[in-house]
Design a protein around this nucleic acid. Structure first.
Lengths: 342, 342
DNA sequence: TTGTATGCGTTATCAC
DNA sequence: GTGATAACGCATACAA
């Protein structure tokens, strides 16, 4: 307690919070003591007394996931500016633990941000929302009723990618869509499709390949494309993938069969993940504004906690296109039958 | 307060903590109330009164860094098992903020784990250690005196990589070392060198290339190797890199000049990062036990907090080799002069 | 076996 | 202007 250095503790509280009147002399004396002791007020005890929000929790299924980590990082930056402490915990989910939806060491009442790379678990949300103010952070539309949410809107980026490919001169384009038509990926796929149509590609010009969303899925998908359209004059000259992993699989397999990207084939991904940033050529893809989502989520959470339980409109932040070298105008000499041989 | 549901709050405290004697009847009554209200004790308030450690802090320069995120994830897993709350904050460092070494919203006295992907900042550590029990988490040897630390030991993996390459039949090997001979990377490089020598490669068989640790650095390095040893019968048949990023650069540039990995050139990385996991062929590299480091760091921190300030020996956890397809015995027909042309 | 009193670090209220 | 004092949610020594 810094009050040993001078006078009373109420006065110390005053100077720290800027409230009340403190004489100039004591103020400097106290500030000096604070500096010398390196004193920092305990935010927990502070939140105990005052009803102000002093800590927020971040809960996810996997804190090591790159997307989750980036969102957390955004929350951290915003929280530091507001002097708010962030606690992180992992929701182990109903399966791994007998008590359903157990959330690790979570205190009652703490405002929470539930962030996921993928789909939100309805049960986890229900458990959380029962005792906390919760804001969702993720991508696309969530199916959790009127829950407050800060989400990434993949459509602008999808639109830009499609437009970019079409304006580069491609007229036969393939989209690799997820095998399971679910949340995040289906929205990306829909965005890409809509973008192509808006850019003037006729239905017959769009080939849709359903694949597992993974590197291997991408390899299988492009293989399938080679099989289905052996006629080079009909084969798509550009492949739009719903995820970077798929695009990397496409890149790999194409190269293995002798195709050069982007000369023989243009490829785009989605996510701007670390692997996609180091491909050669650099993948044209969509950047996910994860940090911004974290920041927005924290802002919403604080507003939401203040306002009680008034519904707050979901906030969408647009993903944006990142230009790489994996797209260029289709070449005429795609010929030589490459990509057909096993 | 759950005491509305039955009797007094001391009794509730007893049943929650397992201390004291509670009659069977009341115990079940209380447990029922707890379950129905979904009550969870507030760990902050708990830590306020009892001297037990109930919260630990994780501080890093960048919470979104994959390595840091993995360590944090390990801490989280261990903390959940012990019902400890984890707070995360970013040390913005002395440069970004006038008050030197400011650590975001950190409460005084909380035990801390300082984790970094790279070198520890001596000033940041000093600031932290002045008011907290601190355990370091990172890779290699730290230069911070007798500070408690859980660190990754890169040498076993380096040794295995070198041995694996040599036992595959390679006799002329190159090591790509960091331009700046600092901490983490220098230890990896030293480990690789020692491993090669231990495996029986003579000094003259080892080519050392100094490069920037990045994808681009890897490209430059391999280019340099081609220049320096145009004579194929003298050129190294395997390249050991101190980091995955470098290895990826080597992979890319090699392919661009027409070399096939691993037929014409074997390559190894270090780190087993996400990009390295998706190369084709899969990169042979070293896995960093980040989660284990996090777990060990938390254990050490708790012991350290209990023991007061007794020095705790540093704990090293070995990195291990991951076999990919990027290494195979050297082929005789490396010929054709490939890799020499611009 | 159970209730009461006290203190942890902080803010808010209200006398002085 | 300033300093007691209560209260926040919890653990604990002690009294009942």
């Amino acid at each position: 307690m810094a009050r040993l250095a001078d006078v009373s503790k109420t006065t110390v509280s005053y100077v720290i919070n800027g409230t009340g009147y403190v004489s100039e002399e004591r103020r400097t004396r106290i500030e000096l003591a604070i500096a010398r002791l390196g004193y920092r007020p305990n935010a927990f005890a502070r939140g105990l007394r005052s009803s102000r929000v002093s800590t927020v929790g971040v809960v996810s299924a996997d804190a090591a996931d790159p997307f989750v980590a980036r969102v957390t990082s955004g929350i951290l930056a915003e929280a530091a500016a507001r002097d708010i402490i962030v606690t992180v915990s992992v929701d182990s989910g109903p399966s791994s633990c007998p008590e359903s939806g157990r959330v690790g060491a979570r205190q009652t009442g703490e405002p929470l941000i539930y962030v996921t790379d993928n789909e939100f678990s309805a049960e986890a949300y229900a458990t959380l929302a029962a005792r906390h103010v919760v804001v969702l952070a993720g991508e696309g539309e969530h199916r959790l009723g009127r829950a407050a949410a800060a989400m990434i809107d993949p459509r602008p980026a999808a639109h830009d990618l499609a437009t970019f490919v079409v304006s580069s001169g491609h007229t036969r384009v393939a989209i690799v869509t997820p095998a399971r038509w679910s949340g995040k990926w289906s929205e990306r796929a829909a965005g890409l499709r809509d973008g192509l149509i808006a850019a003037g590609i006729p239905w017959v010009g769009i080939t849709t390949i359903s694949a597992e969303v993974s590197v291997h899925g991408g390899r299988v998908a492009i293989e399938e494309l080679f099989m289905v359209t052996p006629d080079l004059s009909l084969r798509p000259t550009a492949v739009l993938c719903v995820d970077d992993s798929v695009a990397i699989g496409v890149l790999q397999r194409s190269r293995e069969v002798g195709l050069i990207v982007p000369d023989h084939l243009s490829v785009t991904g989605f996510g701007d993940t670390t692997p996609a940033q180091t491909t050669s050529p650099r993948l044209t893809t969509a950047r996910l504004p994860a940090e911004e989502i974290g920041q927005a989520a924290l802002e919403m959470l604080l507003r939401s906690a203040d306002l009680g339980d008034k519904a707050i409109p979901a906030r969408m932040i647009a993903a944006s296109m990142v230009r790489g070298g994996s797209v260029r105008p289709p070449q005429l000499d795609t010929g030589t039958g490459m990509g057909v041989e096993r």
